[in-house]
Amino acid sequence: MNQIGVIMGSDSDYKVMEDAIKILRQFELDFEVKISSAHRTLERTLDWVKGFENQGGRLIIAGAGLAAHLPGVIAGATTLPVIGVPMNSGPLNGVDALYAIVQMPPGIPVATVGIGAARNAALLAVQILAAGDDALRRKIKNYRAKMAEDIAAKDEALQKKLNED
Results as ranks from 00 to 15, higher is better:
L70I: 08
A68E: 06
V110I: 00
V33I: 11
L80A: 02
D47Y: 10
G76D: 02
R25K: 14
V16R: 02
L42D: 11
H69R: 06
I128N: 07
V102L: 07
A68N: 01
V73S: 07
T78P: 02
N120T: 03
I61F: 05
N163T: 12
F27E: 12
G51Q: 09
D47S: 14
K141D: 15
M104D: 05
I101K: 01
V126L: 01
D150F: 10
D30I: 09
S12Y: 07
A152S: 12
A122K: 00
S36Q: 11
G132W: 06
D19M: 10
L24Y: 04
A131R: 14
D150L: 12
Q26A: 15
V73D: 04
K160G: 04
M1G: 15
D19I: 11
G63M: 05
E156K: 13
Y99D: 15
L98V: 09
A130L: 04
R137S: 14
M8Y: 08
A20L: 07
Q159V: 14
L92F: 13
D47E: 15
K139N: 10
M1E: 14
Y143Q: 04
L29Y: 02
G107F: 06
M104R: 03
L129R: 09
L136C: 04
T41F: 08
I101A: 01
W48Q: 03
A117L: 09
M17Q: 03
E164M: 12
A157V: 07
V95F: 15
G114A: 12
A38L: 08
Y14R: 14
A153C: 10
A117R: 11
L24S: 01
S12K: 11
N120I: 02
P106M: 11
W48G: 02
S89C: 14
M8N: 04
N88R: 15
A100W: 00
G132M: 07
M17Y: 10
V73T: 12
V95T: 13
P109Y: 00
I61V: 08
V85Y: 03
I115T: 11
K22A: 15
V95K: 12
R144G: 13
Q103R: 07
T79Q: 13
A111F: 02
K50T: 14
V95S: 11
A20H: 02
I140G: 03
I4D: 00
L158V: 12
G56M: 08
G65D: 05
A152R: 12
M87G: 07
G94N: 03
F52C: 09
V82D: 00
G72N: 05
A118F: 00
R119D: 12
K50S: 14
Q159P: 06
D150S: 13
A152M: 13
T78R: 03
A122C: 07
V102D: 00
V113K: 01
S89Q: 13
A117V: 05
Q3W: 10
D47A: 15
H39M: 05
L129I: 09
F31H: 08
K154I: 10
V33A: 11
I4N: 00
I74H: 00
V33Q: 08
P71D: 05
A38H: 06
V16K: 03
G116N: 03
D47V: 12
P86Y: 10
V85F: 05
M147P: 10
G9H: 08
G57Y: 01
A121I: 06
S10W: 05
